[in-house]
Amino acid sequence: MIQVRNVSKTYLQGKQEIQALHNISFGMEKGEFVSIMGPSGSGKSTLLNLIGGIDQPSAGEIFIDGSPLHGISDDELTLIRRRKVGFIFQFFNLLPILTAEENVGLPLLLDGVPFSRIKEKACRLLENVGLGLRTDHRPEQLSGGEMQRVAIARALITDPAVLLADEPTGNLDSHISEEILELLKNLNQAGQTIVMVTHDARAASFGKRIIRLKDGGITEDVSVPGCDV
């Protein structure tokens, strides 16, 4: 499902070159739930952005669902993000001007689908994440946990090949975090491939496999005990 081959990423900070990722390679099968862990600055969010096509590697190759993310135009990369990847961010990143159902339907709206055809699916997804009664609420009228549920529903609206979660519980209290992680686990059990970046070992344990990063390199790639990988 995901192939990362010899990927490196360097940034220019002022005149200084920063090596965020260094020659990383790994693969993921369909239906896996991988947690990427590491201390701050280890490159885990950079790796997630590369897998999601938000950023492009300085070297190496990445494939998602058979599609290469390298050597393609920005438009092609964007369409892969739109159709094959679902994003969940730490700060939810919902559009404050849209209602919950409109936020959920946004990726399909971008594809030119009329909202009348999206509405039913958006409402169903909101019901699945426990927000069936909040479809008309704007983000400012929702709690942090509820906003993250809307973000999850939005990530699922295009039936993506992979769900990418960047510190999805980083901005939530422990009780709500538990609920969100349970939700992700259930999605994975239903067959959804998930990559989650976290620095929280408890959160990481909800995945089936943990990849640890340090200074831009993989230091460990292990299965979570008790999980069938």
Binding site: G52, I54, D74, D75, T78, L79, R81, R82, R83, F87, N93, L94, L95, L106, P107, L110, D111, R154
Partner: peptide
């Protein structure tokens, strides 16, 4: 700017 970033992240093309 952030809205543009979100739209781009979830699949909105530059020209759009």
């Amino acid at each position: 700017r952030k809205e543009i970033g979100i739209l781009r992240a979830i699949g909105c093309r530059r020209k759009e």
